[in-house]
Design a protein around this nucleic acid. Structure first.
Length: 334
DNA sequence: TGGATTTGACCTAT
DNA sequence: ATAGGTCAAATCCA
């Protein structure tokens, strides 16, 4: 699959590369510091913390290496390291492969990529494929529970609603608006799981490969304060699809949702919330509000520039624990 | 009129 | 057999 880069992104590409290279160097330095620290520790005293920190550093290095590979247009030749692989290394969760991840040697293995190819078999037409699908694996998904339906910076289109067994409220199915024009495979399910207080559970599947990230790249490069740059530059590529990071730009509670007419139910509200791009602007607050004035979608680099990472492999090098963020609970399920 | 939503049908996994 | 996920025609709406 050959993707051409938008001009604005190409113009920023060198800066992005510089930032990534610098970040990788810093992470490498941190790794060395950790090594020194570990050697001074008495065994059994805090070694686990250092180990987990090392795993985190390895993930960071992996992300940098993958991104650099992608930016260099090598994604077609080499294989991107998946989050599963990284996770297996750091958590020791039963993975047989315990070799440590070397950021300088990206491995490539993507079953999802092969799936993608098989789906495009010319022998099957759209009509023939009605209702046919592969039930998603439970991996590569993450959920967010929130009291409000907040915007995650992407444009979604509702494609279905289903009554779920033993559930009070129907589940709403959304896919990325750019599913067809940009082959973006990201989908999400939204379901109200509690009435009082209302809690909505959003489950995300796949990674955005659409190119809604033009403004986001400007946002990334616009940050001035150290804190912001640490948020946006270092991890701007991750924040896009992981609710944890997109939450940084979301405001809950304070958000006033304009309603022309009263909504008959929360389930209906769920649909209207995703109505279009412009409505989603109402929910986004940025440290630099002007960055959002002309465009709503907030995306980063990682998933959008990796057309093969449909399941969020590359950027899934995150700590797999629930995140508590305001009134939200984030859970990552790999 | 084009894009988004609704909703019943269809298909697969369990 | 059933539940869950997706498709696509019909409908809505700006």
């Amino acid at each position: 699959m050959e993707l051409s880069w938008p001009e604005s992104v190409l113009s920023n590409r060198e800066r992005v590369m510089e930032e990534l290279i610098q970040g990788r160097e810093l992470a490498s330095q941190l790794c060395r510091v950790l090594d020194d620290h570990k050697s001074t520790l008495v065994s059994g005293c805090g070694g686990g913390d250092v180990g987990s920190a090392e795993g985190l550093v390895n993930k960071i290095l992996g992300s940098f290496a993958n991104t650099l590979l992608i930016l260099n247009g090598k994604e077609a030749d080499g294989e991107i390291v998946s989050g599963d692989q990284i996770q297996g290394n750091s958590s020791g969760g039963g993975s047989a492969d315990s070799s440590s991840w070397d950021a300088n040697h990206a491995i490539i293995k993507s079953e999802d990529f092969h799936e993608e190819i098989s789906c495009k078999s010319p022998s099957t037409t759209f009509k023939d494929r009605r209702g046919s699908y592969k039930r998603r694996r439970t991996s590569h998904s993450w959920t967010r529970d929130a009291q409000d339906l907040i915007d995650d910076g992407h444009s979604w289109r509702k494609y279905g609603q289903k009554v779920i067994h033993n559930a009070k409220h129907p589940r709403n199915y959304f896919r990325c608006t750019h599913k067809f024009d940009q082959s973006c495979q990201a989908t999400k399910h939204v379901q109200k799981i509690l009435d009082d207080p209302p809690v909505f559970r959003t489950t995300y599947y796949g990674n955005h490969t659409c190119r809604d990230y033009l403004k986001a790249s400007e946002l990334v490069l616009d940050c001035t304060s150290p804190r912001e740059s640490s948020n946006y530059i270092r991890f701007g590529d991750i924040k896009q699809d992981h609710p944890f990071f997109s939450s940084l730009t979301s405001v809950k509670k304070e958000v006033v949702i304009k309603e022309e007419k009263p909504q008959p139910s929360d389930d209906h509200m769920m649909a209207s919330h995703h109505h279009n791009h412009s409505s989603s602007c109402d929910y986004i607050v940025s440290p630099h509000p002007t960055a959002f004035e002309s465009s709503c979608p907030l995306s980063g680099l990682s998933s959008t520039i990796d057309p093969y990472d449909h399941e969020g492999d590359v950027m899934s090098g995150l700590i797999v624990e629930p995140y508590y963020f305001d009134d939200e609970v984030l859970q990552y399920e790999f």
